[in-house]
Design a binder for these strands. Structure first.
Lengths: 202, 202
DNA sequence: GAGAAATTTTGCGCGAAGCGCAAGTTTCCT
DNA sequence: AGGAAACTTGCGCTTCGCGCAAAATTTCTC
């Protein structure tokens, strides 16, 4: 995702990832991100505090780093798909595809999710990244549908996809063994296709 | 919304509102919320800095205070409507109704919106409030539809409504004279009713 | 009304966040 | 190899956010 160029780039990415993982590890250990300081994270990752702040504005950002990377991957994938598919299908397939390629195990995801749900600051920051994703993606969708960025339809389509993704994710994390994630995602998208007014038969 | 009880309650609400307005005024004057300190806001509102932090965790929260109050009003309204209407209609009518009762003038709204769009921290905090609204509202929707909170459908319905509201708002702020806000909201909801896959005829 | 009880405001002080700056160190390119 | 470019680090500063306890204000009770 962030390589291709020299060794330096790779080292930067490695440090960033290391900081992110350190943040996660410590947060799990302490039970909450607020109980962890920037100093702690820097120490755990083996860099100075100042360096930590060169990479991240806050510990929340560090904690959510890989989530952020995932969304970037999603956008890249979407950009490609939108050239060869109707936008709605592109969105659906990107979302499904992202999760199929996922390297995280269920336990880590649940762990992270719980930490986020219990921390107001984490919720806020995650929501912020979500919103950022939205604004970035609106451009792609608008271009694909040949509409303007501030038109109604692209925002509605994109919003639907994001909500579908979010709802599917949350539902699946709560009941991981009920159905595979990709099925839940597909079902969410189907609901939007059929119109929202009444639930489709599960 | 927050009265009924004694004079003290009203004074508290007044101070809180005053702080919120002070935050807005100063942010407009400086062109960005980051250029305003908590001290400044407290001074402008005529209270001590410490008192400011008794009311708000951060200046962003102060700046978004009235937005927060609006969402609370929306939730109260929704709770009532959901007893006598199908949930989707309740959502639509609550959203439309909220904006019809609006006391803010267009210029203030646009002003605020621009300040938010230009400030990453404000975007983050607004998104956070949005998410909080979501979690609060999921309960209402789940109860109204007789489903569990972690089911798929309530989250999708609610998410749709929020997206419809958000998209309508943004579109309208960008083109205030193209159509009245309530029409744009209605149109957004109609899109979700018809299914998202292709745009309804504008 | 006056004094007691409850609540709010305020100043002080602390630990941490976040960042500019400049010097030291590592990587890159030829 | 050796200079240019980029990264790391320590220092110091400003602001944040909040705990604590004294002072001020409102409410309650008689």
């Amino acid at each position: 995702m962030t390589d291709q160029t020299g060794l330096r780039e790779r080292k930067k990415a490695a440090t960033k990832a290391a900081l992110g993982e350190a943040a996660f590890r410590l947060a799990v250990a302490e039970g909450a991100i607020d109980a962890v300081s920037a100093d702690d994270i820097a120490a755990e990752a083996g860099v100075s505090t100042r360096t930590f702040h060169n990479y991240f504005h806050s510990k929340e950002e560090a904690f959510l780093h890989d989530f952020n990377e995932l969304t970037r991957a999603l956008l890249d994938d979407l950009r490609e798909r939108s050239k060869v598919q109707p936008i709605w299908e592109a969105l659906r397939d990107s979302c499904v595809g992202l999760r199929l390629n996922e390297r995280y195990d269920l336990h880590v995801l649940q762990c992270k999710d719980e930490l986020v749900r219990n921390s107001p600051t984490l919720i806020t920051h995650q929501a912020g990244q979500f919103m950022e994703l939205f604004t970035d993606a609106v451009g792609i969708v608008a271009e694909a549908t040949g509409t303007r960025g501030d038109d109604l339809y692209p925002r509605l389509v994109l919003g639907s996809a994001l909500i579908a993704m979010k709802a599917a994710n949350e539902h699946w994390l709560a009941h991981p063994d009920q159905a595979p994630l990709e099925d839940v995602i597909t079902r969410s998208f189907a609901q939007f296709e059929a119109g929202i007014t009444r639930p489709i038969t599960a």
